[in-house]
Amino acid sequence: MVNIKRSPIVDTGEAVGIVAAQSLGEPGTQMTMRTFHYAGVAEHVPLGLPRLIEIVDARRDISKSLMDIYLTKEYSKDKKKVEKIAKGIEQLTLGKVAKIVEDFENKSIRIIVDVKYLESRNLTFRELVKKISKFLNGSARVRTKSGKYILITAKTSYVQLRKMSMKLKSLHLFGIKGLSKATVAKDDASKEYFIRVGGSNISELKKMEEIDFSRLYTNSIRDIEKHFGIEAARSAIVKEIKQVMDLQGLAVDVRHVMLIADAMCSRGYVEPVGRHGLSGKKESILARAAFEETIKHLVNASIKGEEDKLNGVTENIIIGQTIKLGTGKVKLVMR
């Protein structure tokens, strides 16, 4: 284990970048738009090319994030306990637990509440009313009718009324913000139950002691970077890209994926490949100009008086020299 063999190390001057790009790009052309689903989550999770682009672009708002939440040993073996926690995690808004009816004639909003359900979640009707009035912050009159429904009257325009009702619908009541559709699944390997939930909110989950934080996983690379650091983010990039390729049945050597992940994390933070990332921050002016936004790079370089050191591949091809790779890396020396 400790003794690293020299044999798997590539030769000096090997074009690992190009080979990695080709190794990922070629199967990428065959990638279908076919989509599979994660078991248990009804919503569509992007896979294949769209997901690959998402990872490589290091998007902050990925189109569908997911979390796998593992619990500590006390809970994880008992399906019922896990289910209870899962139910508690899921975010419930007012719109989900109550019926909100707009009455434009009287400029009012009626909220019909299932009191029994509220009480089962340890929230009394009174507390709910308090919460709503706090939320509206005096912008409307809040009244209760026969302990069953809440009547809100406001002397505003119809547009404002509609906006108010939309806001009320998304009023956070239970669970953790941003998490939805919690399902309990069984890990076949460790024979324990875990929670798979849509959305990503690590900072809130951190506070829960039932959760085994060391095994928490999300497919949002930016979240991993924020809470676990750059090394974790690098591993996550590798894992996510590998998963995309495997799901499509495409065999790509991990080392190519690792190289890309390394490149994306090389500055200590995750940055995208492409115009705003790796390609756009290359050292050489000519290489940047050859990629995108030619004039911008040339003019900016002239303002700063930049010099092209001609160390890369692209710039040497442009000026018509041998590239400093492979056979161009070595030189004959007279003895």
Binding site: G13, E14, A15, I18, V19, Q22, V313, I317, G320, Q321, T322, I323, K324, L325, G326, T327, G328, K329
Partner: peptide, 11 residues
Amino acid sequence: LIGYGASQLIK
């Protein structure tokens, strides 16, 4: 050709 490191051939 870059992938092969054939820099003389590229030139």
